[in-house]
Computed example of a mutant assay.
Amino acid sequence: MRIDLPRPSRRRLSLTSLIDVIFLLLLFFMLSSTFTRFASVEIAAPGGGGGTAPRPKIFATVDAEGLAINGERFADAEAVRAKIEQLAESGADTALLVPKEGARAQDLVTALERLRAGDRLKVVVAR
């Protein structure tokens, strides 16, 4: 004669501890993260038509190959800084930056940072 023992019934899993862990993780990530911007880029748009604004002495274009100022292409930031210093001494105070086809957003931001080095120029972005 064989006697079968009753199978132990499964207990339902309590979700209370799981909810506690999720709540603690949520608190940890909320308190350890920052909600501030790391950097922002100010972009000035060209003004409305109708007026006779002076032409900017600096015309810069940016594309996939890099930055060109007044038709001369520059590879590094120091060369751009030297050219900006030279043009600023000759009376240039505004630069017009035109992104060309193939320019990425990062190329535009890099060109803006290089043109604004030293805060000597106001950079206007045209499309």
Rank of each mutant, 00 (worst) to 15 (best):
M1H: 06
M1S: 10
R2Q: 13
I3V: 12
D4N: 12
L5G: 04
R10V: 09
R10F: 07
R11W: 04
L15W: 14
T16R: 13
L18A: 12
L18P: 00
I19K: 10
V21G: 01
I22Q: 14
L24N: 01
L24K: 04
L25P: 00
L27Y: 00
L31Q: 04
L31W: 07
L31S: 09
S32N: 11
T34N: 01
T34M: 01
A39C: 12
A39N: 15
V41H: 07
E42S: 12
T52Y: 13
T52V: 14
R55F: 09
P56T: 01
P56E: 02
P56V: 04
K57D: 03
K57V: 03
K57R: 11
I58P: 01
I58D: 00
A60V: 06
G71Y: 00
G71L: 01
R73I: 04
A77M: 06
A79E: 06
I84L: 11
I84S: 07
E85F: 01
Q86V: 04
Q86M: 09
L87A: 12
E89C: 12
G91N: 09
G91R: 08
G91I: 08
A92R: 00
D93W: 07
L96W: 04
L97C: 12
V98N: 06
G102N: 05
G102Y: 09
L108P: 09
V109A: 13
T110D: 15
T110H: 13
A111G: 12
E113D: 13
R114G: 07
R114Q: 13
L115H: 04
G118Q: 03
D119T: 06
D119L: 05
K122I: 13
V124T: 03
V125K: 02
R127S: 10
